[in-house]
Amino acid sequence: MRSGWLKRKKAEIQTPTETPSDLWSTCAKCHEVVFERDFQRNLKVCPRCGHHHRLTAEERLEITVDENSFTEINGNLAATDPLEFPDYAAKLEASYRATGKYDGMITGSAQIEGIPVAVGVADFSFMGGSMGSVSGEKIVRLMEFAEQQSLPVILFTASGGARMHEGLFSLMQMAKTSAAVARLDRSRIPYLVVLTDPTTAGVLASYASLGDVILAEAGAVVGFAGRRVGNQELGARLPANFQTSEFQLEHGMIDRIVQRKELRPTLAYLLRFFGAEVEEMEDADQSI
């Protein structure tokens, strides 16, 4: 996996513009030209302005979980076209070919600093990470798997919201995934969310807002709707950071903004924090 994603680059995943030599990258935000090697070493964060470029699911796993520890589950679940929605079937086929995946939500088991976890990563390059029946089903299966195995759950979100091509089926995935979170809560399974760019609409208004801890990457778009606001508030001036990680932090909706290179140790720390209590409880049980 390591060499695979380093070589593969696609425009739609906001990879900085390639230069003919392939030795340089240009930041999508500040246009700083950076040595490709430095850019990769910096986890696709611009060394000048700190802009966090989007990652594919593979890239995310690569920098987050222990090497070769990820085992995908339910990777063969694929969408149907229950509404026979215009162009949906063709869009799906094109997305399969472009990404080599059947869905934007990749789930499985892995380890982070040796701690076993159930992990899901949304890939924005697959139809904008939109949540249809498959994403919803994979998230719920991951949570049910985690509950059975007593594994903490980590979800990296990136989504434009519910997938309109599956109509009401997509909307219901909000209820379905949130109900699964309720069951995790009941079983005291730790559930950590990392909001990445962008996380909006139906995904933010369901499982993405329900983590025991909610982290976010710097500068990510995080908001309920687009920047087009309701009529009665058109006059109100929007703050410059409206619907970003920073805005959500300011308003108490997330716990922390974490720099990409700090994510792995941050998650590991939290996993140990949540896990330690379980061990003590087990110790107490044994002593009785």
Binding site: A79, T80, S133, E137, F169, M172, K176, A180
Partner: peptide, 11 residues
């Protein structure tokens, strides 16, 4: 709600 959704399993 768990059962809401339509998907298929590809081989």
């Amino acid at each position: 709600f768990r059962q809401m959704g339509r998907w298929t399993e590809r081989t």
